[in-house]
Design a protein around this nucleic acid. Structure first.
Lengths: 290, 290
DNA sequence: TTGATAATGGAATATTCATTCCGTTTTTCG
DNA sequence: CGAAAAACGGAATGAATATTCCATTATCAA
């Protein structure tokens, strides 16, 4: 411990240094070492608290590989390396709010950093608000309806389009039959005409409500297609026609509304539907769906 | 260990509950137990990282007293008690915890509501993490590049497509000339060939990185078009070719990654660009842009 | 004051954990 | 293609750590 450390070029003692050392040397590292190094950087909390065995399992390597990595980087052993990750947590005195403040503080009024922190703030507030207002029962009922649908139609224009795009992506991954009604051409209504009561609709619309979305939703509702709506106010026209609906009031910054909370909801829906369908297959009450 | 825990009223699993339990029962505790309990509350970080021996020394008691305290409070042992202090450090990003807890509380295990709260949790953590890791300077530089671009090309496939869609929407609103390269047909590369060094690219890609996005980005970079990348790891192939890049490591739930943090970033970029262009018009160093 | 009970200190013990070692596999270079 | 070196997996080992046990001391009621 006396002469060995003098021989070392320099062993990083704080997380940021370690991070850059790993990034720099990753290309020349053996496969498993690189693998566990990547895991360490993306799961620093686990590195701080886990045991060599638990981390090794999570990173899909042997415990010995962790010791090898530590030595490879110049540390005495795994424990020595782990201390860097612990120090990181220890010294993180800044809570998230404080951090945001510092972002704002380092920014002269009207600067870019202030803008960024503003949007992050809006995002986190939106998520928090949704978490405290959303009704688990409504969600469950909506999932019920959607899980029994043969095809799920997705109606969204303009600002809510990214939302729908993401749902469509998740549906594709999960093997849920769907049809997105958001094409830039004018054949939307033609696509919607195939929907029946056996199907269902997810419609998203925020103020100012796109007229097309509304008329499409109303038309569908008139034909007995159940509608799940994602909107931003009790007074939304969508809420009137919907079978179930969610109120997601996003915070805004500089006049632009966040989408972060809606996104979380948009991700939860497909997964919940897929899961519900699995359990429906085991105990099918009616023969809906494929 | 079998009947004892049933007899316990309830063992606190989070720091705040533990805190109130200790405060409440402190008066009726034996002297040494009260002593070490007080130490624990005023040195929670030491409790998280220290060993039983080190903490005992610091609190001027015997190690066995720590075990006694743990048992006294209903825990299996010192390690079990220590986990509460570790969890506190792990989760200390959010003040929204309590709100989320209420959602989780009303949810039986495996229910839909639990799923929803899981995704909201992931979203909230992602935003918090981005807020604490993002570099205001990088953001500012990226905005610089983009503000001077004639046309901004948007490259995104699959999971990152909704992100790009939203940026495109904001660009449209703000009157920023852009071209989205994400069409479902095969003419992507043809669209990209018009880009020159006077333009710029925003490319988003998350693991597993879509091959097309990468090749397009590399091709563009080779022609001298500056690239701003949004990706999820330092090891992302995108980061290598990018002029400036943002690391957005989204938390995942049930294997599905959130998009909430990236969304916040995606909203901040267009607004910042628009604002920068306004100030460039007043003091134009070079005649770039329209 | 005295006996009984609870609390405490400190050593003994059992467990968990990081580390090392060795046989095998993979990679590298002639 | 073949030999040497590096990397790796997995079990063995030894150190560190939490826990338990017991003798001693303090507390309290009769």
């Amino acid at each position: 411990m006396t002469s060995s450390e003098a021989a070392q070029t320099r062993v990083p003692r704080d997380f940021e240094s370690l991070r850059s050392v790993i990034i720099e040397r990753k290309e020349t590292m053996p496969k498993r070492l690189a693998q566990v190094a990547a895991y360490a950087l993306s799961n620093p909390d686990d590195m701080a608290f886990g045991t060599a065995a638990s981390i090794a399992t999570a990173a899909d390597v042997q415990p010995s590989t962790l010791v090898r990595l530590a030595h490879h980087l110049g540390y005495d052993g795994f424990s020595d390396l782990q201390n860097v990750f612990r120090a990181r947590l220890r010294d993180r005195t800044l809570s998230y709010e404080e951090r945001l403040l510092s972002l704002e503080a380092g920014a002269t009024a009207g600067s870019d950093a202030e803008l960024l922190s503003g949007f992050l703030n809006a995002a986190s507030q939106s998520v928090a608000r949704l978490a405290s207002t959303v009704d688990g029962e409504t969600f469950s009922k909506a999932v019920d309806v959607l899980a029994r649908a043969e095809t799920i139609y997705l109606v969204a224009k303009r600002r809510s389009y990214p939302l729908t795009a993401h749902i469509a992506y998740a549906f594709g991954k999960l093997g849920i039959r769907h049809q997105i009604i958001a094409s830039p051409n004018g054949i939307d209504t033609e696509m919607a005409q195939f929907a029946t009561g056996k199907d269902a609709v997810i419609a998203a619309s925020f103020s100012p409500y796109a007229a097309e979305s509304l008329t499409q939703a109303q038309e569908l509702a008139g034909r007995g297609v159940p509608i799940i709506a994602i909107t931003d106010s009790v007074f939304s026209p969508l809420a009137a026609t919907a079978t179930h609906w969610f109120e997601v009031s996003e915070a805004d910054y500089a006049g632009f509304r966040s989408l972060s909370a809606s996104m979380a909801l948009a991700m939860a829906l497909p997964v919940a539907i897929a899961e519900r369908r699995r359990s429906l297959k085991r105990t099918p009450r009616r023969n809906a769906g494929e």
